[in-house]
Amino acid sequence: MDVFDQGRFTVVADPAGAVFSQWQARAFPGAGRFNDPGTLGWTELRTPDPQGALAFYPAVFGWTVSDSAHFTHWGVDGADFGGMKQQGDEERARTPAHWLPYFTVSDTERTAAGALSAGGQPLAPPAHIPGGPWVATLRDPQGARFGIHTP
């Protein structure tokens, strides 16, 4: 679909049903900032089929993949921008496959408290990932899930 002279977009789903959008720039190039406070800083695929995702996304977008014992990272030319976690049975029963955006914030605890006071709901409280960022996941008053992180 065209968005006036700004660009084109489409909404699609991967083979496991995780929905995402694609943007083809014209007059509006898209997001010009990444990982600055208040901007998108990470995105995570939650899927019941990680092997299918590993076949799909690199083939479609040319993403690079790096794995650790517990986590898969997505990248472009080796620069990581997101990751993937397999959904367990309990999560799959509550939530279909999905992409979870994380927004960069300067203080995860303060931002989570502000989101809760504005009507949000906690999904996972602020926590420190050893050797990594502070993270929290929330739901906005309309039900959309998102994460916040402080690198």
Rank of each mutant, 00 (worst) to 15 (best):
2 D>P: 06
4 F>D: 14
6 Q>I: 07
6 Q>L: 15
7 G>R: 00
8 R>K: 12
9 F>H: 02
12 V>N: 09
14 D>W: 08
15 P>S: 09
16 A>S: 14
16 A>H: 00
17 G>H: 03
18 A>Q: 00
18 A>K: 04
19 V>I: 10
20 F>C: 05
22 Q>N: 04
22 Q>L: 15
25 A>H: 08
25 A>I: 06
28 F>K: 11
28 F>G: 10
30 G>S: 14
32 G>E: 08
33 R>V: 14
34 F>Q: 11
34 F>W: 12
34 F>V: 03
37 P>W: 04
37 P>L: 02
39 T>C: 10
39 T>A: 09
40 L>D: 02
41 G>W: 05
42 W>P: 02
44 E>V: 11
44 E>Y: 06
47 T>V: 10
51 Q>E: 15
53 A>T: 01
54 L>H: 12
56 F>D: 12
58 P>K: 05
58 P>C: 12
61 F>C: 13
62 G>M: 06
64 T>D: 11
64 T>L: 06
69 A>E: 11
69 A>F: 07
69 A>H: 10
71 F>P: 03
71 F>Q: 00
71 F>L: 09
72 T>A: 04
73 H>V: 09
74 W>C: 03
75 G>L: 01
76 V>W: 14
77 D>C: 08
77 D>L: 08
80 D>K: 03
81 F>D: 01
82 G>F: 05
86 Q>R: 10
87 Q>L: 04
87 Q>V: 00
90 E>M: 15
94 R>W: 12
95 T>G: 09
96 P>Y: 03
97 A>C: 07
98 H>W: 03
98 H>R: 10
100 L>W: 05
103 F>W: 10
104 T>M: 05
106 S>Q: 15
106 S>T: 13
108 T>Y: 03
109 E>M: 13
109 E>D: 13
109 E>P: 06
110 R>E: 09
110 R>I: 11
111 T>Y: 12
111 T>N: 04
112 A>N: 03
113 A>I: 08
114 G>E: 04
117 S>R: 15
119 G>L: 05
120 G>A: 11
122 P>K: 13
125 P>N: 09
125 P>E: 15
125 P>L: 11
126 P>E: 01
126 P>W: 02
126 P>Y: 05
127 A>T: 13
128 H>V: 08
128 H>K: 15
129 I>L: 14
130 P>G: 12
130 P>D: 04
130 P>M: 08
132 G>P: 05
133 P>I: 03
133 P>R: 05
133 P>C: 05
134 W>Y: 13
134 W>K: 02
134 W>I: 02
134 W>C: 10
135 V>G: 02
136 A>L: 02
137 T>S: 13
137 T>C: 13
139 R>I: 05
140 D>L: 08
141 P>K: 04
141 P>Q: 01
142 Q>W: 12
143 G>S: 08
144 A>I: 06
145 R>Y: 13
147 G>W: 00
149 H>I: 01
150 T>V: 01
150 T>C: 09
151 P>W: 08
